[in-house]
């Protein structure tokens, strides 16, 4: 008799084909989040707040309670939802345009209040869903559809580092930047998500996990090239690690 050691997490609909582009790490992030929920026995007690953009595609994929947020407002909605439903495990699922541009005030303010929920932030350095415009996290020099001559510091400012920004605030309890661009890092990423959820379950306050992700479609790369790009270029701008675990 053989033991089944690898299976689809219960939080992902049976038979569903992901709506994410081939090679996009969003599906890996979803899987890691669902595995962490399974391991903690929290899937049935979870509610995630969807951002707008590619992260919204998760709704076709994740079999758990959900509340949809207007673009950028996930952290405001998660704040009130969690306070009214403190026993529920609450996380937001947001991209960089959603969290760091249109939702910057909501993100920073929820972090500053130390709201007891978890943010899963998927940073691929671009607006994916709308076709590849510059995001706050786009690297200098990167050509996007709205920076056709490359992002330059004088005109567009430098990439924003959300973990580092949030790390300036007193209240947040857990801040980490991870990636699932390779297997060892994916294992660390899952450990970080588990830790963030554990912090929330213990009522320790705001937890924030940033995934450095990719966008083969809008970066104009093959999936494998995009992973090399993450390793060789992106991670130099966005270093991985635990910024805070208090």
């Amino acid at each position: 008799m053989m033991e089944k050691v690898y299976f689809r997490p219960a939080g992902i609909f049976d038979g569903t084909v992901t709506g994410f582009c081939p090679g996009c790490m969003h599906s890996s992030v979803c899987k890691i989040v669902c595995e962490a929920l399974d391991e903690l026995g929290q899937l049935d007690n979870a509610c995630y707040v969807q951002g707008v953009g590619c992260c919204g595609l998760a709704v076709t994929y994740l079999n758990m309670d959900t509340v949809a947020a207007p673009h950028g407002r996930a952290c405001a909605i998660a704040s009130s939802f969690k306070r009214c439903s403190p026993e529920t495990l609450v996380f937001t699922y947001q991209g960089d345009g959603d969290l760091a541009a249109i939702g910057l005030a909501e993100t920073m303010s929820a972090a500053n209040r130390g709201e007891n929920f978890t943010v899963i932030f998927v940073n691929n350095g671009i607006y994916g869903m709308t076709g590849g415009q510059m995001a706050p996290t786009t690297l200098l020099g990167a050509k996007t559809t709205t920076t056709p001559y490359g992002r330059n510091e004088a005109e567009h400012g430098s990439p924003m580092h959300m973990c580092e920004l949030i790390n300036q605030l007193d209240a947040p309890a857990y801040i980490a930047r991870v990636t699932c661009a390779d297997v060892p890092n994916a294992r660390k990423a899952k450990a970080a998500v588990r830790k963030a959820f554990q912090y929330q379950l213990e009522g320790r306050g705001f937890s924030f996990v940033e995934f450095v992700s990719n966008c083969p479609t809008n970066w104009g790369m093959s999936p494998l090239e995009s992973l090399d790009h993450v390793h060789n270029v992106i991670l130099k701008e966005f270093p991985l690690g635990e910024f805070r675990a208090k």
């Binding site: 405001a76 909605i77 939802f81 009214c84 909501e106």
Partner: peptide
């Protein structure tokens, strides 16, 4: 949006 979240 917070009022929306609480209603949800």
């Amino acid at each position: 949006n917070m009022a929306y979240g609480a209603a949800a």
